[in-house]
């Protein structure tokens, strides 16, 4: 296919999500959804992320069900290592009592890691398979079948995670300090004087909103850039082979690090929400 399309088209094709929407004439896909507005679903992002999430939970659940306190199997030892890693990080940062934060950290860490890991699958492989399936099964031009494999390169995905964390920050802020305490935190910091209330409010609101924004954009930016570089390399013909390898090796670090940072910052933000000034 690549010979028939320009590089710009190739890149755009790779960076476009498979979309689904409901129109007057029923369910429509991709280009038919161009002006569907908000009610458009990125089915590839949803499919891959939920699939990976279920894979993660199924794997961990199957081990958790037969978890023994005696001699663990090797798989159990691995799972325990991951759980213990998250748990010790949460314990170091968060000193209160909260049953949610540690499992939340584990879910974020493993789920984001798995989604990032899709970045290491050769960029053309899954879209090509999807194209062939679309061509053979549904008679669609393969170039009209979109498949963006890495869910964390979709802003919807990263913002969903960040918004989830943001809701929890607000929930725990109000739960721990009460609405009055939360409002006070927004208006009497950093300058503890009533005359500064508007200034404080602006500053603190920016601080509060910056948390989910930075969470979402950091993860998205890192993975999007990484994916883009893989795509650019894929257009170099034979030269891509020696280039893909070092970038993939480097990317192993990036995907783990971004998952870890997302988890760690979530824990830090939530422990900040628990602090009473």
């Amino acid at each position: 296919m690549a010979s028939e399309i320009t590089s710009q088209e190739y890149i755009i094709h790779h960076l476009t999500n498979a979309t689904m929407c409901t129109t007057d004439s029923g369910i429509a896909f991709n280009k038919a959804c161009a002006d569907a507005g908000f009610w458009t679903w990125h089915i590839d992002t949803l499919g891959w992320s939920i699939g990976l999430g279920i894979l993660f939970l199924w794997f961990f659940r199957s081990i958790a069900k037969k978890a023994t306190s005696g001699v663990p199997s090797k798989t159990q030892a691995f799972i325990e290592m991951v759980v213990d890693f998250v748990d010790s990080n949460v314990r170091d940062t968060f000193h209160g009592k909260n049953k949610l934060i540690a499992p939340l950290g584990l879910t974020i860490f493993v789920w984001v890691f798995l989604m990032n890991l899709m970045d290491l699958v050769p960029v053309d492989l899954l879209p090509w398979i999807a194209g062939q399936i679309g061509y053979v099964g549904f008679g669609v031009d393969p170039h009209d079948v979109y498949m963006k494999v890495v869910p964390t390169t979709d802003l919807n995905m990263t913002f969903a995670l960040a918004l989830g964390v943001f809701f929890l920050i607000i929930f725990y802020s109000i739960k721990v300090k009460g609405i009055g305490g939360f409002m006070k935190e927004l208006t009497f910091q950093p300058f503890n004087h009533w005359a500064f209330i508007p200034v404080n409010f602006i500053l603190e609101t920016v601080t509060l909103l910056a948390k989910p924004m930075s969470l979402a954009l950091r993860l998205f930016g890192n993975l999007y850039a990484g994916e883009l570089i893989f795509i650019l390399m894929a257009m170099l013909g034979l030269w891509q082979l020696p280039l893909h390898f070092p970038w993939a090796v480097f990317h192993i670090l990036v995907i783990v690090l971004q998952a870890f940072i997302f988890m760690m910052l979530t824990v830090v933000y939530l422990s900040m929400a628990h602090e009473d000034h």
């Binding site: 009610w39 679903w41 992002t45 939920i50 961990f60 049953k99 879910t107 969903a160 995670l161």
Partner: peptide, 22 residues
Amino acid sequence: NATLIGQLIAFAVFVLFCMKFV
């Protein structure tokens, strides 16, 4: 777009499942 809502729900369900059963 609406994907955000879907992902939010998925996220919440995953976290709850993890918290309860894993």
